[in-house]
Design a protein around this nucleic acid. Structure first.
Length: 283
DNA sequence: ACCCACCCCTGGGCGC
DNA sequence: TGCGCCCAGGGGTGGG
C-alpha cells in the first residue's frame, strides 16, 4: 500500500514519537510479523528490550531505527502495515502484530498489519545501512541520488518504462500509484520500451517522479481508506490530486479523453489514451 | 545477469 | 443472506 510519501510520513512520526526513547517490553503477537528475523521472535525481543532508539531512517519504502547497540530495528509496511504511536490503554487493533512499550511509560508503538506482507526485524550492525536495505537503489528524494546514473541505467534496460520505475534496484520508493502519476505527467505510456526513451525524456520523467513524490508528501500522502495512516492515525490528502491512478472512465484533466485501465504485471495501470499513446510493441 | 510468474495474506465490494 | 470471484498502495524467490 504505502509508497515513498506515505512511508516518509511514518518516518517523521517515528522521529517525533519514539526516537530518543528506551524500549521496555516487546510483545510479538503474530510470528509472521517477524518472519524476516531468522532467529525468531524471542531473539527479536531480547535484542530490543533495554535499547534506545537513536534515529529514524528511510530509503525508498524501507524504514529503520538504529539502536544504541549498533543494530537496527528495520521495518517494511508491505501493502497494509501501519506503525502507530498510541496511548498504552488504547484497545488492541484487530490486526495488532507487535507492541513496544517504553521505559518512560509514555505512548507505545504498535505494528498493525492486516495482510501481513510487511514485517519487522533486527539487523545486526545495521545502524548505518541495514544489509536487508542495501540491495535497493537510493530514492529520488535522497540528496545523493545520481540523476545521470539513473538516466544511463534506465536506457540500458530492455523493458517497459513502468516496469523500470517499479524496479526498486533501479530507483526506489515508487509504487503503482506514483508510477502511473509520473507517467501521466510525462505523457508516456508505461509500456514504452526503455531503450527508446531519449536522455531528455528520461530526465523529464525523473523530474516528474520527484515532483509527484514531493507534492504528495506535502499533502501527507495518499489514503484511499483507513489502512494508510500516519503514526498519529491521520490520513493523507493527495488522492484528490491524482490525475490517472484509479480514475478509469473519468475525463483526463489535460485533454478530456476518458482514462483507461489496463492489466499489466497482474495489476492495474491507468493512463490517458489521448496523452499517453500505447506504443506499437508495448513491454 | 537479467526477467517474470508465482506466492505470501486478509477483507471489501460486487454479481449471481 | 450467502457464496464465489475479483481486486488492493508490497517484495522475495525460484525458474527460465
Amino acid at each position: 500500500m504505502p509508497e515513498l510519501p506515505e512511508v516518509e510520513v511514518v518516518r517523521r512520526g517515528l522521529e517525533r514519537g519514539v526516537v530518543g526513547r528506551t524500549v521496555a517490553e516487546v510483545d510479538v503477537r503474530h510470528p509472521r510479523a517477524v518472519r524476516r528475523h531468522p532467529a525468531g521472535a524471542e531473539d527479536f525481543r531480547a535484542l530490543l528490550e533495554g535499547r534506545t532508539l537513536v534515529s529514524a531512517e528511510r530509503r525508498g519504502k524501507y524504514l529503520w531505527l538504529p539502536l544504541d547497540s549498533g543494530d537496527a530495528l528495520t521495518g517494511h509496511l508491505g501493502m497494509s502495515g501501519q506503525l502507530l504511536v498510541v496511548p498504552g490503554d488504547s484497545p488492541a487493533q484487530t490486526h495488532l502484530r507487535v507492541r513496544f512499550t517504553f521505559a518512560d511509560g509514555g505512548r507505545e508503538l504498535r505494528f498493525v498489519d492486516q495482510r501481513t506482507f510487511g514485517g519487522l526485524a533486527v539487523v545486526a550492525g545495521g545502524a548505518e545501512l541495514p544489509s536487508t536495505v542495501a540491495h535497493i537503489a537510493r530514492d529520488p528524494l535522497d540528496p545523493a541520488f545520481d540523476d545521470e546514473e539513473f538516466v544511463r541505467r534506465l536506457r540500458a534496460r530492455t523493458t517497459g518504462v513502468k516496469r523500470a520505475l517499479l524496479d526498486q534496484t533501479l530507483v526506489s520508493g515508487i509504487g503503482n500509484i506514483y508510477a502511473d502519476e509520473a507517467l501521466w505527467r510525462a505523457r508516456l505510456h508505461g509500456g514504452r520500451p526503455t531503450e527508446g526513451v531519449t536522455r531528455p525524456r528520461a530526465r523529464d520523467l525523473l523530474g516528474h517522479v520527484r515532483a509527484v513524490l514531493k507534492e504528495s508528501l506535502e499533502q501527507g500522502g495518499t489514503s484511499f481508506d483507513a489502512l494508510y495512516v500516519s503514526t498519529e492515525g491521520v490520513s493523507g490528502l493527495f488522492e484528490r490530486s491524482l490525475h490517472a491512478y484509479g480514475r478509469e472512465g473519468e475525463p483526463c484533466d489535460r485533454c478530456g479523453t476518458p482514462i483507461r485501465r489496463e492489466v499489466f504485471m497482474n495489476r492495474s495501470s491507468f493512463s490517458c489514451p489521448g496523452c499517453q499513446p500505447r506504443p506499437r510493441v508495448p513491454r
